[in-house]
């Protein structure tokens, strides 16, 4: 299962990186989003998938799953949610003000 997840993470990273290098603003935003999903999956996989019962004491279990990665992922999801919201607004404003969503034309010139 871990192996399959690693492959999934790899594919996510591949697609995300590809989108990040395209010229359209909105594709870059989607790329950033996919990359963050990939890292969250990676965090989950790295600690080992389901190695025991939920970490609740006094229920007769002896083997527990590690709860820390899930806490980390929750925090990371909240952060990436905020960043994505901001990125979308920024992309929209950039498009409105510069009148293009093509990053090649957003390169800028020397005479300003």
């Amino acid at each position: 299962m871990e192996l399959l997840m690693s492959v999934v993470v790899g594919v996510f990273f591949m697609v995300g990186t590809y989108l990040l290098m395209t010229r359209s603003l909105i594709r870059v935003v989607i790329g950033i989003n996919l990359l963050s999903h990939a890292t969250h999956l990676l965090l989950l996989t790295m600690a080992g998938l389901k190695t025991g019962a939920p970490p609740l004491l006094n229920r007769g279990e002896t083997e527990f799953s590690d709860p820390l990665p899930q806490a980390l992922i929750l925090t990371a999801i909240v952060i990436s949610f905020g960043i994505t919201a901001f990125t979308l607004v920024l992309a929209y404003r950039t498009y409105k003000v510069n009148k293009t969503d093509d990053l090649d034309q957003l390169r800028g010139s020397h005479d300003e």
Binding site: L35, T39, A76, V97, N98
Partner: peptide, 29 residues
């Protein structure tokens, strides 16, 4: 217009490296 253009790139590169920070954290863990 200048600020919007440059800050989008600033944001993209920083978000990208932040993702790698998380990857590094996952590896370390």
């Amino acid at each position: 217009a200048f600020q919007l253009r440059e800050s989008f790139k600033y944001l993209a590169i920083n978000v990208f490296s932040s993702m790698f920070f998380l990857v590094g954290i996952a590896y370390i863990y």
